[in-house]
Simulated assay, not measured.
Amino acid sequence: MQKDQLLTRRRALIAGAAVLGAVGAAGTARVLTADPAGSPVRAPVAGGPQARQALKPSAYRLEPMTGFAPPRRTPGKPAVRREPIMRVSGRGRTMVLTFDDGPDPRYTPSILRTLRKHDVRAMFFVCGEMAVDNKDLLAEMADDGHVVGNHTWTHPLLTELRRSEIRSEIARTSDVIEDAYGERPVWFRAPYGAWNRATFQIGADLGMEPMAWTVDSLDWTTPGTATIVDRVEEGAAPGVVVLSHDAGGDRSQTVRALRDYLPELLDSGYHLTVPHRQDS
């Protein structure tokens, strides 16, 4: 399958996955945080009253984050969760930017340059079939201190696969990440946000925590750069995880949007960072 055909396939699957994604990533009873206490909190609805508060100017800028380089040891296996992590905690107005489906040599390098310009770390949930041909980009992510997570090999709807197939999709991708990035991933994101008990169990057995998102930029629909910027800025709030894509189709709007909203978020006092996984 050609890389540019991913968007067509995913558009066909997205309708069926939407219900599963809502149940697995947003419709569960509670939302977990990545802080040591692990206290469940309710995630703000993207675009809701809290999220639409106007951005306020601030002199606060992101401080250098040399402490967020990839870990140099292998954490223990996490507990099996029943719902994915959707929010993170941290000092001040902390947010996390995440990019799915890459790396793609047409768009990922531009995203990396923008993040580097502003000294910001992000999370990249990569697909094995993309990563295997672009290992240099994973190495670049490691050098810049970004976190690389597992997004399966071919981006399938995992809830329709047998357990052996789910494990193969995830394990093969972890192998490629370890080879190119230097560490096995400790975060996992199910394609389409479609989770079930098997995905949680297998992900945990392979040493990964499940990460979903709070704010969906819907950039894969190519709604226009300004619309993507508005969605991210209106959804900005402490603890949110923003979903965007650096592959799977034409991501030029995503690239341009990041250049616009990232400095605005920083000027408004947001601390763009990456989470630490807590050992079990």
Rank of each mutant, 00 (worst) to 15 (best):
V23E: 09
T33R: 05
I228S: 03
K3L: 14
R113Q: 14
L206W: 01
V186E: 07
T74A: 14
Y107G: 09
G24N: 08
L265Y: 12
T214D: 06
G16L: 14
V80P: 08
G38R: 07
T154Q: 10
G48P: 02
A194I: 03
L112P: 12
N134I: 09
R163E: 15
V215H: 01
G67N: 10
I202R: 01
D175E: 15
N196M: 05
I85N: 04
D175A: 11
F125G: 02
H118G: 05
A226G: 04
S268K: 07
L218N: 08
R73L: 10
E169K: 03
R163F: 03
F68P: 01
Y270V: 07
D216A: 11
D101W: 09
R73V: 07
G47I: 09
G90I: 07
L62D: 09
S39K: 10
V232P: 00
H271C: 07
A22I: 12
V41G: 01
M211W: 08
D219M: 01
D230A: 12
G235L: 02
G149D: 13
L265R: 08
T214Q: 03
G102H: 11
V215C: 03
R106W: 06
G102Y: 08
V242W: 00
N196A: 04
Q53Y: 04
E165L: 02
P75M: 00
V176Q: 11
I85C: 01
V23A: 14
